[in-house]
């Protein structure tokens, strides 16, 4: 029993070490030549541009729900003029980064894990190695870099679309005062609030690409290897997004 527990602990520490070293290695090779801007741009397109429609859709509906709920709640206290401030702060500080990151993990992260998992199972990653091409530098570093660039941009789009979604429902449909909506945002939103969202976006960009690349890269070479890697990638990156969100919020408040 004690032996098994010891082996489990050792195995867990080894795996955690490999997980962390994977990120360190990927981050190192971002700054280490040869640089491949072509690969960076391709990954920014896949993670960023290809996720844009989804982000606009989810951001719009999230803002609309906030507009509806926010108006009905604030009206009870006679504060419906604060609707814009509430919608904007909730989106920019919290819901925008978290919901957008979860959506990108589900869409681009799962695809990333599946692609690398398939490459692992068909020996394409081994093929890179024997051609003296570093697979982490070629496959992982561009994805992590693309995540760091794309996430803040996508989350900013999510926030802006959400704020307009809230305006459409709260002001257009429910009748909240129009001028107060945007004036409230301009008066009460601080630069610190915006930066909180940006910091979160940067961290989530690293977390999602790191976890999804690691799971795909380490996929087992068997029939269920790719599907298991994909599932684990989405579940773990979603859990880590929420965990990091808590810690970042407590630090940045």
């Amino acid at each position: 029993m004690a032996e098994r527990l010891g082996a489990l602990v050792i195995d867990s520490v080894v795996q955690l070490g490999a997980f962390v070293l994977f990120l360190v290695s990927a981050a190192f090779y971002v700054f280490f030549p040869p640089f491949k801007p072509r690969l960076w741009i391709r990954q920014i397109r896949i993670i960023g541009a290809d996720s844009l429609f989804l982000i606009i859709l989810i951001g719009g509906f999230t803002g609309m729900v906030l507009g509806l709920q926010g108006y009905n709640t604030l009206r009870r206290f006679g504060s419906d003029g604060a609707l814009g401030t509430v919608v904007a702060l909730v989106l920019v500080r919290e819901l925008g980064p978290v919901l957008a990151a979860l959506m990108i993990a589900a869409r681009a992260g799962s695809a990333m894990a599946a692609e690398l998992g398939a490459m692992q199972s068909t020996e394409q990653i081994d093929a890179l190695t024997v051609m003296a091409i570093n697979p982490v530098q070629y496959l992982v570093s561009p994805r992590v870099l693309a995540g760091v660039i794309s996430f803040p941009l996508l989350i900013s789009v999510f926030d802006v679309v959400g704020i307009f979604g809230g305006y459409m429902i709260g002001v257009g449909l429910m009748g909240a005062p129009s001028a107060a909506y945007f004036n409230g945002i301009a008066d009460n939103m601080e630069w610190h609030d915006v930066m909180t969202g940006i910091y979160k976006a940067l961290v989530f960009g690293v977390v999602v690409t790191w976890v999804c690349c690691y799971k795909g890269y380490r996929a087992e070479r068997m029939a269920t290897g790719v599907s298991r890697a994909t599932t684990e990638a989405v579940v773990l990156s979603s859990a880590l997004i929420l965990a990091f969100d808590y810690f970042l919020t407590s630090i940045l408040l």
Partner: peptide, 9 residues
């Protein structure tokens, strides 16, 4: 190296 499954990209 020629891999068993070809390993073409």
């Amino acid at each position: 190296v020629l891999f068993q499954a070809g390993a073409l990209f």
